[in-house]
Write a protein that binds this DNA or RNA. Structure first.
Lengths: 125, 125
DNA sequence: ACCGTATATGCACATATTCGCAAGTGATGC
DNA sequence: GCATCACTTGCGAATATGTGCATATACGGT
């Protein structure tokens, strides 16, 4: 494996926001607006960080109409990558912020019209 | 585990030089000058990057006279960290650069006087 | 065709990272 | 004490990264 790819993978994981996103996706597939809702971050931020994880090879992208649905790419991931994801899962186990994110995800309405607007309006926490 | 620590660990691993260093230390304990010889990098660079890995919790430091001997801290590492190191080992398996580094390490003379000077003199590769 | 919605992207700016140089630290030996 | 050696650290410069704002793109419904 190229050193470059491995570095890219680690870079992708060395950010708060992206770790929280990965944690969320360990729960289930999400669209961008669900991520922004659960993490209470801007749309740009959600989109950009999702695409970093995607470029690094951790995520799978599936389009459905207007929505971009991201999920952890278990099959497509190169050998050692799944070990990294597993390390994240373990490392974040019991983490307060991570748990709250997940809680907010289940609370959040599933994809549907007005999703982005709803998120912008609600200064939730 | 704190998100901050996990991010720090990944940051530590998201750099060429540091991955090569870790690869080297998977072979055996090394002093700073051995690292600079094997990787053909400056002394500052070797020292700085070693200390980043150390701060992140991957390395153990042992002083012996003039020398700072770094090694992978298998016992001291937090749970998921060993999985990360293992992922690096696997990811770098068969990597050309990583192999050459290791080869140069065995070639390099063991710690001894003039080690730093020798390395600076030889524009080896 | 037009509008509204979900997502992507160009640009600008603030902050962080990496690294070389030069100077500092601490141990060893004369 | 003084010189030497392995290593560390402060500083400055080049580069990379993360983010918001505004704008672009792409799709579905009317």
């Amino acid at each position: 494996m190229l050193m470059r790819d491995l570095v890219k993978a680690f870079k992708a994981l060395s950010d708060d926001t992206r770790l929280r996103i990965l944690n969320l996706l360990l729960e289930r597939e999400c669209c961008v607006c669900e991520v922004m809702q659960a993490l209470d971050i801007s749309q740009t931020r959600a989109s950009r960080n999702l695409s970093v994880l995607h470029d690094a090879g951790f995520l799978k992208l599936r389009r459905d109409g207007l929505w971009s649905l991201y999920s952890i790419d278990s099959e497509g991931m190169k050998g050692s990558y799944s070990a990294l994801v597993e390390a994240v899962r373990q490392g974040l186990d019991g983490n307060g912020l991570a748990s709250r994110d997940k809680a907010r995800l289940s609370t959040a309405e599933r994809v549907g019209p007005g999703c982005v607007k709803r998120c912008k309006g609600e200064g939730d926490e």
